[in-house]
Amino acid sequence: MTSRPLDRLDSRILAILSEDGRISNANLAQAVGLSPSPCWQRVRRLEEEGVISGYRAIVDRAKLGSSEIVMIEVILDRHDDEVLENFGRAMQEMPEVLEVMLTTGEYDYLIKVAVSGTRAYEEFLRSKLYRVPGIRHSRSSFVLRSLKERQYDPSLQAG
């Protein structure tokens, strides 16, 4: 977390970079109303402070054969260190698993999985997920359509 609050320019830089991480510094500077050098310094500071933790390519999963997204809620048998570590390690080793979130409420984890269809999902369940020790129960929902995916929204900034 940053030691200082973000100002309007920092928020605008983050919003633009979250939409286009490959924008040139010159174009970014023009978009936020700065000259290139101060803009570059702000981006570097945001990186050094850990506000910007990296840059990624957004991959079209359908073109790679994994067009279906399934959200899986999981309840574990126990919550001791061994079960939690084994579960976390197993999730890291499964390429179909895109995200794993520890949650509050009835379920312990929410897992986002990419597969090529229902048969591939059944195979994932049988050969991978259900073989993970410590899982007591799971519930799955296929995503029909994603209405919004963002990494940053400046209106959520505290301050």
Rank of each mutant, 00 (worst) to 15 (best):
S3P: 08
L6W: 06
D7T: 06
R8C: 00
R8L: 09
D10L: 06
R12H: 08
R12I: 01
L14C: 04
A15E: 08
I16Y: 02
L17V: 02
S18T: 04
G21R: 09
G21D: 03
G21P: 04
G21M: 06
R22P: 00
S24L: 02
N25E: 06
A26P: 00
A26T: 12
A26Y: 10
A26V: 13
N27K: 13
A31G: 00
G33D: 01
P38I: 07
P38N: 03
C39D: 05
W40L: 13
W40D: 07
W40K: 11
Q41R: 15
V43R: 08
V43A: 06
V43N: 04
L46Y: 01
E49C: 04
I52Q: 03
I52E: 09
S53N: 09
S53G: 11
G54I: 06
G54V: 04
R56H: 11
R56M: 13
V59E: 12
D60A: 01
A62I: 06
L64Q: 12
L64C: 01
G65T: 06
S67H: 12
S67P: 01
S67V: 03
E68K: 13
E68G: 01
I69S: 15
M71R: 01
I72D: 03
I72G: 00
V74R: 09
I75H: 07
R78D: 12
H79M: 11
D80F: 10
V83S: 10
L84Y: 04
E85W: 04
N86V: 07
G88L: 03
A90T: 02
A90D: 04
M91T: 02
M91N: 04
Q92T: 12
M94D: 13
P95S: 08
E99L: 13
M101P: 00
M101K: 12
M101R: 11
L102P: 02
L102D: 02
L102C: 04
T104D: 10
T104W: 05
E106Q: 12
E106P: 03
D108L: 07
Y109T: 02
L110Y: 02
L110D: 02
V113W: 09
A114V: 08
A114M: 09
S116P: 01
G117Y: 10
G117R: 09
R119F: 13
R119K: 14
A120E: 14
A120L: 05
E122Y: 12
F124H: 06
F124Q: 09
L125F: 10
L125G: 04
L125S: 08
R126A: 12
R126N: 11
R126T: 12
R126V: 15
Y130K: 15
R131G: 14
R131S: 10
R131Q: 15
V132K: 10
V132H: 08
V132R: 12
V132M: 11
G134K: 07
I135E: 04
I135V: 12
I135H: 07
R139L: 14
R139W: 10
S140Y: 02
S140L: 05
S141Y: 12
S141T: 05
F142W: 09
F142T: 03
V143F: 07
S146C: 00
K148L: 15
K148V: 15
E149C: 04
Q151M: 12
Q157P: 00
Q157W: 13
A158N: 08
